[in-house]
Structure formats: C-alpha cells, structure tokens
Write a protein that binds this DNA or RNA. Structure first.
Length: 258
DNA sequence: ATGGCAGGTACGACCTGA
C-alpha cells in the first residue's frame, strides 16, 4: 500500500500536476493540503473519472485539506472527521478517515509567521491540541498514519542553512519539541527510517532560485504509528513535480507499506 | 532590515505563505 502527502498550494492551479502524479504513482491514499477552494469547487468528478474517490474540507482563499483514495484498492472511507476534536476552528486544517483498519489523517499545520507573533502562539496551541488528539486517536485506531505539511523542520539536517534559520519559525525549539512529542506517542518519521541523500527537502522558496540552489526545508512528513511502522519498506520525497512549470512550492512525499 | 515569488480576492493593493 502506498501512502502520500502533498501541499499543492491551490488545487485549482495544480490539478494537472496532481492528476499526472496520480497516474504515475497510483497511491492508494493521498493527503492534500492548501486546497484554497470551497467544497462546491472541489473537482470530485474529475478525480472519480480517474478512479479516485475523495473526502475534503475546504474554505475560501486559505487552507483546505483532502484525502484521495484509489477506488480499486480501498474501501469507502468511514468515520470522516474534520479538524481537531479538541480545537474548534474556522480554519480547515485536518481531515481524517478510516479505510478498513487504517486511520489516515491529512493535516496542514499552522505556519506561525514569526516566532513570538500572535500567529506563532496560535501555532503552538494548535500543535498542543494535535498532540492531545493524536494520543486519543492512537488508542482508538492503532494503525494510524498522520501525513501532511507540519511546518516544522525537525532537525538541522532538515534545513539548508541551519545557522540562518537558527531558532526561526519552522525550526524553533518550541516547534521542534512539539514534533518530538508527536514522535514520543510512538510514531516514526518514515523518511528517516532509511538512508537518504543529505540535503533532501520538501519545500523551497519560490524566490531567488530557491529550488535551483536547493535552498529548502524538510517540513512535509509521514508519521506512522508503532503498529504500522514494521510494514514500512520505502519512503521518498519526489522532487520531479517541483521542476515543472508553475509548480507548488512543496514536493510530494510517499511511503510504501507491505 | 528588506524584498524577492506565487496564489487569491477582485480589479488595486493587500494578505498569507515558509
């Protein structure tokens, strides 16, 4: 089974890229973030014509998350949940669904703007709620995959210039300690279970040739619960879509489970 | 310290992203 995640930065603009990637990789489950569209504009019929079903939670202009599932291999999603149960929010940042015994969560963690800002405080509170709710979910659903844009680079190895990003947003000790709390619930950072090329990132700034110079961060992750981890056989970040014309600033990440 | 690039909203200029 192949699980994947991609922050598409507008599904409307990226629909062709997503469709090409689905055709090429045929993931069983794909979590999407930053749809930037309302539910009435979600291209459900298009995905269905490609053999994918979807559950989604969008809003105007910002945020928005979805789960695509391959209809040939996956049952209909059960117990669809939107947002964090312990954090009522207008912003659509989480969608979760169960496929057989697998709980799959697609999350778009708050960016946080700048360390010390109001948005940063909101990010930390949001992450505290995620830690609490993930603990509860894990009891209920032992086989759980949490995928998405975490907006946290867990370690200096996940940053092109750790000195320049020292204690900056996405890299601060407050954010990293919360990422660690997620891991300490028994989760595995799937990407780090394998030997990886140094300086492998999942996001690059559009400006100043960020991608061409590989000035990036690894902030998109696939976390697997303890019972799921032994099934993990491969995890890759796919840079190819980032090379296309009019790309998302994020690359997709995928994991293979046996 | 600032701005640079991109998308959305809405049609000028600003907000947000990371």
């Amino acid at each position: 089974m192949k699980l994947a995640s991609w922050n598409v930065n507008s599904l409307k603009v990226r629909l062709e890229h997503v469709s090409e990637w689905l055709t090429l990789h045929e993931p069983d489950l794909l979590g999407l973030q930053e749809l930037k569209l309302t539910d009435d504009s979600f291209p459900l019929a298009h995905f269905e014509s490609m053999g994918y079903g979807a559950v989604f939670a969008g809003q105007k202009t910002y945020n928005g998350v979805a789960i695509l599932y391959k209809q040939a291999s996956m049952p209909k999603p059960q117990d669809v949940e939107i947002n964090l149960p312990s954090f009522p929010d207008e912003q659509r940042r989480v969608i979760a669904a169960t496929f057989d015994d697998l709980r799959f969560v697609s999350a778009y963690v708050v960016n946080g703007s700048e360390v010390g800002s109001e948005k940063f405080a909101y990010k930390l509170k949001w992450l505290d709620a995620l830690i609490k709710d993930l603990a509860d979910w894990t009891k209920k659903y032992p086989d759980l995959a949490l995928v998405g844009d975490f907006n946290i680079a867990p370690a200096d190895a996940d940053v092109y210039d750790p000195a320049a990003w020292d204690e900056a947003v996405l890299c601060s000790p407050e954010e990293r300690s919360r990422f660690k709390s997620l891991i300490e619930l028994g989760y595995t950072d799937a990407f780090r279970q394998f030997e990886q090329a140094p300086s492998t990132f999942s996001w690059w700034d559009y400006r100043q040739l960020g991608f061409q110079k590989n000035r990036g961060l690894r902030i998109d992750h696939i976390l697997l619960s303890q019972s799921l981890t032994p099934r993990l056989t491969q995890c890759e970040i796919d840079r190819i879509p980032r090379k296309k014309k009019q790309p998302s600033d994020h690359a997709p990440i995928w994991a293979q489970l046996k």
